[in-house]
Amino acid sequence: MNSKRLLNQRNLLMLAALILAALVPLAFRSDQYAMILMTTVLIYAVLATAWNIIGGMAGQLDLAMGAYLGLGAFTAGTLLIRWSITPWIGMFLGGLVSMLFAMLIGFPLFGFKIKELWYALTSSALVTVMQVIFLMWNGVGGPTEVYLPTRISPLYSLRFNTYMPYYYILLVLLVVVIIFNNRIRYSKLGYSLLALGEDEDAVEVLGVNSQASKLKALMIYAFVCGIVGGLYACIYGYLHPSFFSTNMSTEIAILGIVGGLGITYGPLLAAVLLVSFREYLRASLGGGMEGLYLAVYAVILILIALFQPRGLAPLVNSGYRKLQTFFGELRHGKPADVESH
């Protein structure tokens, strides 16, 4: 009900978080490691938030993130290398390529009603397949790393020697994706996706074209992944088939699940909390034993999935409501009204 109001508490809170996120890098300007960490967190945050559209709302457990990210990276990178096209344009073209690819994959998949477990498996396998194809495709580098050149100027080629510009680009992207998420959530598409995630037949007899709705969700998601892919290539400065990573793909989905399915801020929250935790572990444990930080991280994921199966967001939500009620009582002497989403 209050979702329409622009300046409700939730939005104010988000605005505060945004300002904080915009200011933090200024404090860590000279700390390269902190900047890498924050940029990494943002990459995961954007991807996990976008995943919410296909995974959280539509309930399609997509594990193909790496396929779309890789395609976007190779599109933007190759355009820069071959034709000196700026990644500013290249990343959107990468997004488009990923989106078209998602359409080609999704149309038959959804048309044949491949869903749940089998959708998850096929989408996961798709990443490996794309990796193999790009390993074999020597025209774009095959198994060797292809470095991105700096053409014309760092700004033109999106090749900076600090992480700060990438951080801000990603932050803008995150805000756009969040706004988009909310717009979709409270639109025809959003309601249709949420309902078909629960019961596809029931939603069909209410006039919803479930195949088209799922396809739209998948294409939006792939578009975002493709754009991130273009940035990803610029940030790392090279192209390699390892961008088609099954591990990273499943991790995005896990962040979405562990954050709370269908709640915009859930995957975001999970990405921010867990990825920074993981990177912190990597920094503090990484030196001695390779893999130890991942093991600890895996245990945390398992514990959350086991003991908070509805995700972190409901947990934080109930805490937030308690605070709200508490302050509401202080101010008005009665509980404040509470939003459902």
Binding site: A253, G291, L292, A298
Partner: peptide
């Protein structure tokens, strides 16, 4: 979905254990 999250967690755990 929860089974997936748990078994994928197990997957990461086993891979990192192998790495260690």
């Amino acid at each position: 979905v929860v089974q997936l999250a748990v078994t994928v967690g197990l997957q990461i755990l086993m891979r990192s254990a192998a790495l260690i």
